[in-house]
Amino acid sequence: MSKLDAEEKEILDAFESGAIKRVKNRAREIAHHRKAAEATFRKDSRINVRISSRDLRALQKRALSEGMPYQTLVSSVLHKYAEGQLTERKVSKR
């Protein structure tokens, strides 16, 4: 077995101690979550956005550090914002 990080070890310990139980209808739950994931990540529309080359380079750099294509990062940020999971941060004026 590979080494577990702290979070993985905590989950494994909780499962082994009985604090975490398997869901009753596993197949139905998996199907439900798979359907939700497919609907969330379905790419059925295309947009074109003009941004500064500086912002594009920053997005590409951030995506590279996250290990994903920059288009995926942009799509994820837009999705989170649209769902209300990402909000505008107020910047105080100095």
Rank of each mutant, 00 (worst) to 15 (best):
S52Q: 08
R42Q: 11
E66G: 02
S17E: 07
R42A: 15
K21M: 09
L64A: 14
A63P: 01
R57S: 11
S53R: 07
R28N: 13
A82T: 07
H32Q: 13
S2K: 08
G67K: 00
H79P: 01
E7C: 04
T87Q: 15
M68V: 12
G67A: 01
L86K: 08
V77C: 03
K9L: 14
R22E: 12
S92L: 12
L73H: 02
K80F: 04
N48P: 00
Q60E: 10
I20M: 05
L86Y: 09
D5P: 03
R28F: 04
R34D: 09
K3T: 09
R62D: 10
V23L: 07
A14C: 06
H79D: 13
E29C: 13
E16A: 05
E7D: 15
K21R: 15
L12D: 07
A63R: 04
F15V: 05
L78N: 03
T40K: 09
S76G: 06
I47A: 10
I30Q: 06
T72M: 10
V77P: 01
R94V: 09
M68S: 03
V49T: 02
R57I: 04
T40F: 03
L64D: 07
E38H: 12
V77E: 00
L59I: 08
R34I: 08
K3C: 05
E16Q: 07
S45V: 14
K93W: 11
R94W: 14
S2I: 07
A14G: 00
Q71Y: 02
R50D: 12
M68N: 01
L12H: 06
A36Q: 14
E83T: 11
E66V: 00
K61M: 02
K24F: 11
K90L: 09
S76V: 05
L78H: 01
Q71I: 00
A37F: 10
E88G: 05
V74R: 02
E66N: 12
L86T: 12
D44C: 01
K61R: 14
E7A: 03
L64R: 14
I11D: 02
S65C: 09
R89A: 14
S2L: 15
L86S: 08
E10Q: 15
L78Y: 01
S17W: 01
L12A: 09
R54P: 00
E8N: 13
E16Y: 05
S45N: 11
Y70K: 01
L64V: 04
L59D: 01
N48I: 03
